[in-house]
Amino acid sequence: MWYRVRLLQKTLYAMADLSAAQYILIALIFVWSGFVRSGLGFGGAVLSLPFLLLVLDEPLVFLPIIAVHLLIFSSITVWMNNRKKPRAGQEPSEGTVDWRYIGRLMTILIVPKMIGVIGLFTLPSNVLSAIIFVIVALYSVSYIINRPFRSGSKAIDVLFLMLGGYISGTSLIGAPLIIAVAAQHLPKEKLRDSLFVLWFILVLIKLGAFIWVGVDLQLIHHLWLLPAAAVGHVIGLRVHERMLRAETALFFRVLGSVLLVVSGIGLVTSFT
């Protein structure tokens, strides 16, 4: 644990020495990050971090930035979607967030999440990541072929959620495993915003841990990366609306395809 604390306490100024081309690449990747986050409700970290590390191999430079972006854009999106008043003749909406289900998820996630943050124990990172991404790949294939996997066992779902909570505590890539379970129980109209609220809670815990151990939050770089992520966020919102109007099978095929990409990237990066 103390080894990790000493590692996190290093102040990182690596972005100050980058070239103009590297800055442009980082900005484009954050546009992509904002797009997938608002379009699907997850993937802002796991689908962008591998590319960011190709530009600068310093995860602790980017993780606080991604965390702050998620807090900002998730809260704005959920607030705007739930403040809309129904049109004349329409019944009041129940909202886009399933708060009861989020509460149930948090009762399962909070303990492994805190264990992951504190770092009381750990498996080898590449082995743990490989297990997670293999499971997610199996889920994604089932969605692509329009036969979503159903475990038929609450115990297995709880196990997957606990693993996802632990991974989200040690990093920010636990979303694919959590969404693989949540997508079975939430309607597509509430899936993204409910996940946004869940990510907000989990990332807030992680960001608090960053502040506690003295990680540089790279606040100066939010001035130019926040607008880049905002551009992607707006594009992603429009894509999400089109996905909701599409047939359910198409929605889950897209979801499965993204999960499969996530799994492939994760398997490759976990052993390199």
Score class of each variant (00 low, 15 high):
136 V>Q: 02
160 F>H: 02
135 I>H: 02
163 L>E: 00
150 R>S: 11
151 S>V: 11
155 A>W: 15
162 M>S: 07
159 L>P: 04
144 I>A: 02
161 L>M: 07
153 S>A: 11
154 K>V: 11
147 R>E: 12
160 F>Q: 02
143 Y>C: 11
162 M>F: 02
159 L>Y: 04
161 L>A: 04
166 Y>H: 05
152 G>Y: 12
166 Y>L: 05
148 P>K: 06
153 S>G: 10
161 L>R: 07
163 L>A: 02
143 Y>K: 14
136 V>M: 01
143 Y>G: 02
163 L>V: 10
159 L>R: 09
144 I>H: 12
166 Y>A: 05
137 A>W: 06
153 S>N: 10
140 S>I: 04
157 D>K: 07
145 I>E: 12
137 A>L: 01
139 Y>S: 02
144 I>N: 11
162 M>N: 05
148 P>W: 03
149 F>H: 04
158 V>M: 13
164 G>I: 06
154 K>G: 08
156 I>P: 03
151 S>L: 10
138 L>V: 08
165 G>W: 01
147 R>K: 15
162 M>G: 08
147 R>W: 11
143 Y>V: 00
165 G>S: 11
139 Y>H: 04
135 I>C: 01
151 S>Q: 07
151 S>A: 13
147 R>Y: 10
135 I>M: 04
154 K>D: 06
145 I>L: 05
136 V>R: 00
141 V>G: 04
156 I>G: 07
146 N>H: 11
135 I>V: 03
139 Y>C: 00
137 A>P: 08
156 I>A: 12
164 G>F: 01
142 S>P: 14
146 N>G: 12
148 P>E: 06
141 V>N: 10
166 Y>I: 04
147 R>M: 13
166 Y>W: 08
156 I>T: 14
165 G>V: 05
138 L>Y: 15
160 F>L: 09
166 Y>G: 04
136 V>H: 00
160 F>P: 00
141 V>F: 15
141 V>L: 15
162 M>C: 09
147 R>V: 03
137 A>M: 08
159 L>A: 13
152 G>N: 10
154 K>Q: 05
141 V>Y: 07
164 G>M: 06
158 V>G: 14
151 S>I: 13
138 L>I: 07
144 I>Q: 14
135 I>F: 01
155 A>F: 07
139 Y>Q: 07
153 S>W: 07
145 I>G: 12
143 Y>M: 11
157 D>V: 03
148 P>R: 10
154 K>N: 04
141 V>Q: 06
146 N>M: 13
156 I>D: 04
166 Y>P: 08
165 G>Y: 00
155 A>K: 14
160 F>T: 00
161 L>K: 15
157 D>I: 00
165 G>N: 13
156 I>S: 12
143 Y>Q: 14
141 V>A: 07
145 I>V: 10
143 Y>N: 13
139 Y>M: 03
159 L>E: 03
165 G>A: 13
156 I>W: 12
156 I>F: 05
161 L>P: 00
147 R>L: 02
152 G>H: 13
153 S>H: 14
150 R>K: 04
159 L>C: 14
159 L>V: 14
160 F>S: 00
166 Y>K: 06
138 L>G: 06
139 Y>K: 04
160 F>W: 09
158 V>P: 00
141 V>W: 12
153 S>I: 12
157 D>H: 13
154 K>A: 10
166 Y>M: 06
155 A>V: 01
163 L>Y: 02
163 L>S: 05
140 S>M: 07
153 S>P: 00
156 I>K: 10
